[in-house]
Design a protein around this nucleic acid. Structure first.
Length: 684
DNA sequence: GAACCCTCTTTTTAGACAGCATGTC
DNA sequence: CTAAAAAGAGGGTTC
C-alpha cells in the first residue's frame, strides 16, 4: 500500500524537504518505503538490511534514513561502488537538501576537494566510494566515531573477486565502530537464509514484488522451436500475425509462465539480425529499448546499422541538445537518428549526453555493453540481452555465459515507474534448442543463490594489517574482527585462528609487523612497521610489498630510470588481474623482453630478481611485464592514445584502467621509498 | 591488371576502485 | 558450460 510522502512529516521531516522531494516528482511512497518508515524504524539505531528487487525504491529508503539522521544532527555517509554513481547521488542530494542547510560532500579518488571538510567532520551527508570510506577510517580512526549512519549500497558487491574483500572488510569495520555506526545495507533479492541477514542482526526489509512487473522472456526465433516450447509449457500460442516472434516469459510478480507475441521489423526494412529486428519492432510499437551487446565494436556497429535504417524507424532526424559539437561523428550521426551507443571507450561527455537523451526519449534504442548494467538511473521499457561470453584477453579456455547476477542487473533496467506501464520486458533471443535450454536453466532461476563473499578465499594479509591500523592490535581483537566477517560465517573458529596465526607469522617474517615488548592480558600486542603501514593503507599484497622493498634497498637511494620503475610495478602480482592486450605468440613476447634489454641492459633487468634470473629464459609473467611497462612508458611520454591502440592493441578504456592501476602501484612504490630510504622521489 | 568474389585462417573480445608525504624536549 | 564475428590472407574469376 503506497502513501503520500506527507507521512514523513510525522517523523520530523520538515516541509521544505518534502517540497524538494515533490519537486522531483516524489509524491508517493511505495509499499516497501512505507514499510521501512512505519515498521522498520528507519530513523532508529539498529542495523537494517534492505533487500528489494530493482525499481522498488531502495535508494530512496537509504536516502531517507541518511537525511533523517542528518536532520537529527548525526552525520550520514553514503557508500557506493562507482564514481559515476557517487557523482549522481552527490548532485541529487545537493539539489534537494543543500538549500535546506545540509552540508553535502563528495569524495572519490579523482575528486578530493571536500576531503579536508570530511576530515574535520564538517559535513552532514557525505557520498563516498566503498574503498575511500575504508581508507579514511583506516587512516584516521576518529573518522568513524563521527558517523551516525552509514548507508552501504550494492552490497552484492561482496561477491566480486577483486573488490569484494574491501567491501566485506568495510562492513565488519563499521560493525565494530565505537560508538556504534548504524549500518543500512542495500541490495537486490537474496536467499532467505543468506548469512548477510544474520550479520545485520536479522533486521531485514524484503519484498519480492516489483511495482512494475518484469517479464523475463526468452524469444524463440525459430518457428519449430516456438511450437515445441509452447507445447512443453502448455501455453497458448498468441494470435499469429505477420512479423512477430513468440516470447515465452516468466512474470516476476506472479511466477506464471505465459507467451506473448513480439513485433519484429520487416526483413525488407533494411535491418538484419535477430536482435536488431526485434529492437526495431519493439521500439516502433512500444517505446525505449536498451540493447546489451557483448563487445564495444558490436554496440557501435549495431547503432550505426540502426541509424542507417532510421527512416524505417520513423525517427525525426534531430540532434539532441548539446550534441552539436561532439567529437565523435559516428555517435553524432546515430544521435541524429534517435539511436546511440554507450561503452567504456566513450568519453564521459558522450556518455552523459547519451544517458540524458535516452531518459528524455530522444534516443529510443541504446546499444551498449555491460557498463550500463549497474550504476546510474536509466530505465527502459524493454531490455534485450545477448548473454554472450568473452574471455579475458590472452587467456584461452576462460569462457562462460554472462554471470546470472549481471544478467539480472541488466534485466532490472526494464520497467519504468510513473509512465503508466503495466510491465517491463527483459528478453533473451534463443535461436536453437541448445540456447533455449541453456537460457532457461541459467536465467530462469527461482531462488536467489546465497551470496558468496570472497575475502577469506583470498589473501588475508593486507586485511590483518588494516585491522592493526584500526587499533585491533592483539591476536584476540584481530580474531574478533575476522570472526565478524561475512565470509567467516561458514568457517569454524579453529580454522580462523590458524589463518590468523599464519598471517601474523608471515607479516612478522617480512618485517611488516612487530610484537611490542609489553604483552597485556590479551596476549601479544602488535605494531605496524613503516612498510606494514603502507601495506595496510594501500591494500598492497605482502608479496608485492616485499619485492618493492627489496628493490628499493638495492638502489640505495639512487633514483632509477622511469622504465625500470615501471618494470618493477608491471611485475607485481596485482597486475595479473588487470585486463589488457597481452601478446600470445612466444616470439612477440620475447621481442618485448629483447627491447627492454636493449634499453636497460641485462644487469638492470637482473636486478628485478625472481622472474628475470637467466638471460634468454625469462618467465611468461616477465614477458608480459615487459610489454606492459613499455606501453605505460610510451603513454607517460605522451604517445597519442590512437597510436598506442594501433601499435599495442590498447583500447582507450583498458589504457585508462591500466594507467590508473599503475599510478596506484607507483605511488605505493614511492611511499615505500620514502619510508624506508627516506629520500623523496618524483613520480609521473 | 584491377575489381570482385569466395573460402579458409587468424584475431579479437566488458568494466573500473584506492593515496597525501612529517615526527618531539 | 564452454563462442562468434570480424578482419586478414590467399586464390580464382571476371571485366
Amino acid at each position: 500500500m503506497s502513501a503520500s510522502i506527507e507521512i514523513l512529516s510525522r517523523f520530523g521531516f520538515p516541509k521544505g524537504i518534502l517540497e524538494a522531494l515533490k519537486a522531483d516528482g516524489v509524491t508517493e511512497l511505495l509499499e516497501p518505503q512505507v514499510e521501512a518508515v512505519l515498521r522498520c524504524n528507519l530513523l532508529g539505531e539498529e542495523d537494517l538490511l534492505v533487500s528489494l528487487p530493482t525499481s522498488c525504491g531502495k535508494t530512496l529508503i537509504g536516502e531517507l534514513a541518511g537525511v533523517g539522521a542528518a536532520l537529527l544532527g548525526k552525520r550520514a555517509v553514503f557508500s557506493v561502488p562507482l564514481k559515476a554513481l557517487a557523482r549522481e547521488k552527490f548532485e541529487l542530494f545537493s539539489r534537494r537538501y543543500a538549500k535546506y542547510g545540509l552540508r553535502i560532500r563528495l569524495a572519490t579518488g579523482e575528486y578530493s576537494e571536500h576531503l579536508s571538510d570530511l576530515e574535520r567532520g564538517d559535513y552532514d551527508i557525505a557520498v563516498l566510494i566503498h574503498e575511500k570510506l575504508k581508507h579514511l577510517a583506516l587512516r584516521e580512526p576518529t573518522f568513524l566515531r563521527g558517523i551516525g549512519v552509514a548507508v552501504v549500497d550494492e552490497l552484492q558487491g561482496v561477491e566480486d573477486q577483486a573488490r569484494g574483500p574491501d567491501l566485506e572488510f568495510l562492513l565488519a569495520l563499521l560493525k565494530r565502530g565505537v560508538p556504534r555506526v548504524r549500518r543500512i545495507g542495500l541490495l537486490g533479492v537474496i536467499a532467505p537464509d543468506d548469512p548477510l541477514i544474520e550479520d545485520f542482526g536479522g533486521r531485514i526489509l524484503t519484498a519480492r514484488r516489483r511495482p512494475i512487473d518484469l517479464r523475463q522472456g526468452i524469444v524463440l526465433a525459430d518457428g519449430e522451436l516456438a511450437r515445441t516450447a509452447l507445447e512443453e509449457y502448455g501455453v497458448q500460442r498468441p494470435p499469429s500475425v505477420a512479423n512477430i516472434w513468440v516470447s515465452i516469459y516468466r512474470s516476476h510478480n506472479t511466477g506464471l509462465v505465459e507467451a506473448e507475441a513480439l513485433p519484429i521489423s520487416d526483413p525488407e526494412g533494411g535491418v538484419e539480425g535477430d536482435l536488431l529486428r526485434l529492437a526495431v519492432g519493439l521500439s516502433n510499437e512500444d517505446g525505449s529499448v536498451l540493447l546489451f551487446l557483448p563487445t564495444r565494436r558490436e554496440a557501435e556497429q549495431a547503432a550505426r546499422l540502426l541509424a542507417e535504417a532510421a527512416p524505417f524507424l520513423g525517427s525525426v532526424g534531430q540532434l539532441p541538445e548539446g550534441a552539436e559539437d561532439l567529437e565523435d561523428e559516428s555517435l553524432q550521426f546515430c544521435l541524429s537518428e534517435g539511436v546511440a551507443f554507450h561503452h567504456a571507450d566513450c568519453s564521459p561527455r558522450s556518455r552523459a549526453l547519451v544517458e540524458e537523451a535516452f531518459r528524455s526519449g530522444a534516443v529510443r534504442i541504446l546499444c551498449c555493453t555491460s557498463t550500463l548494467a549497474m550504476g546510474v538511473n536509466l530505465p527502459a521499457r524493454s531490455v534485450l540481452i545477448h548473454p554472450f561470453v568473452w574471455n579475458r584477453s590472452g587467456q584461452a579456455g576462460d569462457l562462460s555465459l554472462l554471470p546470472e547476477a549481471l544478467v539480472r542487473n541488466m534485466a532490472g533496467r526494464a520497467g519504468r515507474l510513473g509512465l503508466g506501464e503495466a510491465h517491463g520486458r527483459a528478453l533473451l533471443v534463443a535461436r536453437n534448442q541448445r540456447e533455449w535450454d541453456l537460457y532457461r536453466r541459467f536465467y530462469w532461476t527461482d531462488l536467489a543463490p546465497r551470496l558468496r563473499p570472497t575475502l577469506l578465499a583470498g589473501d588475508l594479509g593486507p586485511h590483518l594489517l588494516a585491522g592493526v591500523a584500526l587499533g585491533q592490535d592483539t591476536s584476540k581483537k584481530l580474531l574478533d574482527l575476522l570472526a565478524g566477517l561475512l565470509s567467516s560465517k561458514a568457517i569454524p573458529l579453529p580454522h580462523l585462528e590458524q589463518r590468523l596465526a599464519e598471517g601474523i607469522e608471515r607479516a612478522r617474517s617480512l618485517g611488516l609487523l612487530e610484537a611490542l615488548p609489553t604483552p597485556d592480558a590479551e596476549g601479544e600486542r602488535f605494531e605496524l612497521s613503516p612498510l606494514g603501514r603502507v601495506v595496510a593503507l594501500r591494500g598492497l599484497s605482502f608479496e608485492t610489498a616485499r619485492t618493492f622493498a627489496e628493490w628499493v634497498q638495492r638502489f640505495e637511494g639512487n633514483v632509477p630510470s622511469d622504465l625500470l620503475a615501471l618494470l618493477v610495478i608491471a611485475g607485481a602480482e596485482e597486475t595479473q588481474e588487470w585486463s589488457w592486450p597481452r601478446e600470445i605468440q612466444p616470439e612477440a613476447r620475447a621481442r618485448w623482453v629483447e627491447q627492454a634489454r636493449e634499453r636497460l641492459g641485462w644487469e638492470s633487468l637482473h636486478s628485478l630478481g625472481g622472474r628475470w634470473t637467466e638471460e634468454g629464459s625469462v618467465s611468461r609473467r616477465a614477458e608480459d611485464a615487459a610489454k606492459l611497462a613499455s606501453a605505460l612508458h610510451a603513454w607517460a611520454s605522451g604517445e597519442p592514445v590512437p597510436r598506442l591502440r594501433e601499435r599495442l592493441g590498447f583500447s582507450p578504456g583498458s589504457l585508462h584502467a591500466v594507467g590508473e592501476g599503475a599510478r596506484w602501484l607507483l605511488e605505493a612504490l614511492a611511499d615505500i621509498w620514502r619510508r624506508t630510504v627516506g629520500q623523496p622521489r618524483e613520480t609521473n
